[in-house]
Design a protein around this nucleic acid. Structure first.
Lengths: 341, 341
DNA sequence: AATTGGTTCTGAACCGTTACGGTCCTTTCA
DNA sequence: TGAAAGGACCGTAACGGTTCAGAACCAATT
């Protein structure tokens, strides 16, 4: 029976035809995929866990790029890609338990996320992305800290000392407002924590008292948040010469807010982002480009190669500092370069 | 055992604790989702079948919108969303057979696609989207023909009689070039066939000989195709006053090509699209807006409500004609309105 | 003391498939 | 002609859970 469908070489064409015929006559719809999966211990799919509402993945350009890369890798391997619903509001981990998959990719969730914990308990290979290295599972990411450090050095070189920062959410609780150093340090989102720490390091080295730098957090990740975050920084300190955003989406919002206030970029104020999305490129945004598609593809490859069960691997992809048209020396002041201590 | 995990009320807390304890001690990772699915006959996921490489879904704005809507519906229901790899090149239907899902959503595949046939053979509820009404399964879509007819009437009202068309692929075989009336009529992509037929009807009514209208087909769906398609039309007949594209992405490419040729839009030439994507909106494109997100959501709802197994439903969503800045009367000629026969 | 009712717990059947090993039949070669 | 070899076919045992019937137990009622 099974052979008739899956292994035509194991039986005569005669019998095969007869079996298939009667199967059809009896209304047999073909082998049941779930039963097959149980028996063969292969689900033919990998699960993707994201921190956000499923639909968010389709609204954030960087997430879309990641998904595209991951889908590419799955496609190559003929595997399905199961988007696991993990509503961050409810602590409903059942969806993770219910997912019939051969492995998980976990993309940018807070390190204390219960869904992540649930995934790690499942006895399947896992790849975490944009997360701290857990030591027990594969990881793919970038050097967020180093990349942001480099961007900061660029701004410092231009002469910026009085800056403001707009960042994405740092933890699972909503905190739309200024961020204490404590909260920065304890941030549960690995990516944001490292980007901020790269900034802090560079500016501290340049003699800036980091604890005095206004850092504004926004829970929602969209342009409106970038705009209102920028507004909050500018209201607190209208003298800032540079607005550093931890994502391009936020930076595009900040550009909107600058325009609304009649500030010319980069003459009156410098704005920078992070990610290297298309819309940012078109706006000439100074940013750090990260290979989002490659990240997704690498995660997929890592997961699907898990056959060679060596010890957990950790790959860092290269980033590139893009100097666009939104950064320049502080207004008025002569372009003052900084050459280190 | 099962009860200890899933039905805490069925046994004493004492026993439950003991069972869970020994389970942990024995390294039992919790109930196996696949085995559970087999027994309960519920996979907790819906499958999505697209005509294109999986990764394409993340590159086309309309597809992304659809996915977002579908993901939203799945999220509400706590179901997973399985992207089924259906490489259109290979006729490899196995992925459809292997998918452990409770139902399928089929999005814009050619009506002779073997994957679609495979889905229809599976004994699970199915919703087709942007497909002809099969009568046997639920359907969601728009009135492509009517919407395009309306757009055509707008152009006819502006005075356009000499037009060219750039459309997406009409069948599974690649045909980058002019399209015969036969091929138009026999097109396997329901959406494209109906959009073209809406155009043909309106312009025929206006006295235009449709068989003389240059219609160019492009297999790949991106801006470059739109540009080269527009170029091919303009090379054949430099006198056309309007370029009608069957998608916004193609239209944006056509705008590029017009600019390259020094044609001012809409003064020298009118360009129209279809879909109502963000980038088109920003470009002021005249187009038909269709509610892509709603389409996805409706498809998901239809599938997940399938409990009430009434007869197959068919829903049409409303579209809206958007008159942008890319359409105007033909150059030189006085704006000449057409009031019907 | 026996019956009733209710709760907690145990065991077995089943979901549909694939893997495996055994039987049977045919062919080949000494 | 008989033995060995090989191919085709078939039956059965898991895979790991859920469900459900009924056993066992305890308390309360007749």
């Amino acid at each position: 029976m099974s052979n008739a469908y899956n292994r035509p070489d194991q039986l005569s064409p005669e019998l095969r035809r007869r079996v298939l015929d009667t199967a059809r006559r009896l209304g047999y719809p073909g082998p049941d995929p779930v039963a097959r999966s149980l028996r063969t211990r292969k689900a033919g799919a990998v699960g993707l866990l994201l921190t956000e509402n499923l639909s968010y993945a389709f609204r954030d350009p960087a997430a879309i790029g990641f998904l595209e890369g991951l889908a590419l890798a799955c496609e190559d391997a003929g595997t399905g890609l199961l988007l696991v619903p993990a509503n961050p509001e409810r602590e409903d981990v059942a969806s993770v338990h219910r997912a019939g998959v051969d492995g998980f990719v976990v993309y940018s969730v807070p390190d204390d996320d219960p869904h992540l914990a649930a995934v790690l308990e499942r006895p399947v290979p896992t790849v975490v992305c944009d997360q701290p290295d857990l030591g027990t599972v594969d990881r793919v990411g970038i050097d967020d800290r180093g990349a942001m450090y480099e961007l900061a050095r660029h701004l410092i070189g231009l002469g910026h000392r009085r800056i403001g920062v707009v960042c994405m959410r740092l933890a699972r609780d909503r905190n739309d407002g200024f961020v204490t150093p404590d909260r920065q340090h304890a941030a549960h989102f690995h990516v944001q924590r490292n980007r901020l720490s790269g900034l802090a390091e560079a500016f501290s080295e340049a003699g800036v008292d980091w604890s005095q730098v206004p850092v504004v957090e926004r829970f929602d990740h969209n342009m409106a948040s970038g705009a209102s975050g920028a507004a909050q920084v500018l209201d607190r300190d209208p003298q800032v010469t540079a607005l550093i955003c931890t994502s391009d989406v936020l930076a595009l919002g900040a550009l909107d807010e600058a325009a609304r206030r009649g500030l010319r970029v980069p003459h009156d104020i410098t704005v920078t982002g992070f990610d290297g999305i298309r819309a940012g490129e078109e706006a000439g945004l100074t940013t750090v480009r990260q290979p989002v598609l490659e990240k997704g593809r690498a995660a997929g490859k890592l997961l699907l190669d898990a056959a060679e069960r060596s010890r957990p691997r950790s790959v860092n992809l290269a980033t590139e500092l893009i100097i666009g048209k939104t950064s320049a020396g502080p207004r008025g002041g002569a372009e003052e370069r900084w050459f280190g201590p």
